[in-house]
Computed example of a mutant assay.
Amino acid sequence: MKLTANLSLMYTELPFLKRFKAAHDDGFSAVEIQFPYDTPISDIQQALKENNLSCVLINVPAGDLMQGGEGLAAVPGKAAEYAAAMVECLAYARALKVSCVNVLPGRCSDENKRVFYLDTFKKNLVKTADNLAPFGITTTFEAINTRDMPDFLISTADQMLAIVDELKHPAIKAQFDVYHMALMGCQICSFIDENADKIGHIQFADIPQRGEPGSGTLDFTTIFRCIETSGYRGWVGAEYKPTRRTSMTMQWKRDLAANVALCS
């Protein structure tokens, strides 16, 4: 597997720009960042260069989503705000040479408005993909569990799959998060195996507390083997909340390396 470290959730015991070296020292060759927009592009480029890292994924700015709001991508009245967010994202995505950009659908608390939010989201998703595809960037979107984010517009793997199938856009794929989908009852391995060609990025953390593999109840030996033997060839992002200093939570990575060596 091609592993990345998510610098928004991991190494948070360090200032942001020092997290790049920590990830490199732990053997990662790539990183991903949820929202890099508070840091100048040139500073991130320098940190990547100094540590021989690539940045593979960022999110489109999501407005008030992380503060409990609806976000931007699906709200009918926020077309101008989403367009501005897309422009900002494109500047970072091109400069950092990412392979994927993730669009967070956001929340809809009014069931009567859900159909309109979904329609807006799909239109924005297509616009984003049309803008990013000429630069070789895949547009992804993800489902998030309703325990952590109540009223999230897309919360199951089947809902993601339905949108991918409906839009049939060559540059739009699902971002599959093992943590979120396991909490929603998804059969992780069978979904990845059956839909590998429709997945643009994979992320993982253990359940129930989103810690590192081994801190919860998921069988990551089986999950990692499933990803490796599936048709999926993209990046696999460690996006967990470490239960202690991040560098002390890498036993899963050492176990993975040992299993690869054993099988080779």
Rank of each mutant, 00 (worst) to 15 (best):
residue 2 K to F: 01
residue 3 L to A: 01
residue 5 A to D: 05
residue 8 S to P: 09
residue 18 K to V: 08
residue 22 A to C: 12
residue 23 A to M: 13
residue 29 S to D: 13
residue 30 A to K: 13
residue 35 F to W: 12
residue 39 T to I: 15
residue 40 P to G: 01
residue 46 Q to V: 12
residue 46 Q to G: 05
residue 47 A to K: 02
residue 51 N to Q: 11
residue 63 G to C: 05
residue 66 M to H: 12
residue 77 G to P: 11
residue 84 A to W: 01
residue 84 A to F: 07
residue 85 A to Y: 03
residue 85 A to V: 06
residue 92 Y to M: 06
residue 102 N to A: 08
residue 102 N to F: 01
residue 103 V to L: 13
residue 110 D to S: 11
residue 110 D to A: 13
residue 111 E to G: 02
residue 121 F to E: 06
residue 125 L to I: 11
residue 128 T to V: 02
residue 130 D to Y: 00
residue 136 G to T: 09
residue 139 T to F: 05
residue 143 A to P: 15
residue 146 T to V: 13
residue 152 F to V: 15
residue 159 Q to N: 09
residue 162 A to R: 15
residue 163 I to E: 08
residue 164 V to K: 03
residue 173 K to H: 10
residue 174 A to V: 02
residue 181 M to G: 04
residue 184 M to G: 10
residue 185 G to H: 09
residue 185 G to L: 08
residue 187 Q to L: 11
residue 188 I to Q: 00
residue 188 I to N: 01
residue 194 E to N: 11
residue 198 K to Y: 01
residue 200 G to F: 00
residue 207 I to Q: 05
residue 208 P to L: 14
residue 210 R to N: 14
residue 214 G to Q: 05
residue 217 T to F: 04
residue 221 T to F: 13
residue 222 T to S: 14
residue 226 C to W: 04
residue 229 T to H: 13
residue 229 T to F: 06
residue 235 W to K: 13
residue 238 A to C: 14
residue 240 Y to K: 14
residue 247 S to M: 10
residue 247 S to D: 14
residue 247 S to C: 12
residue 250 M to E: 03
residue 251 Q to L: 14
residue 263 C to T: 15
residue 263 C to F: 07
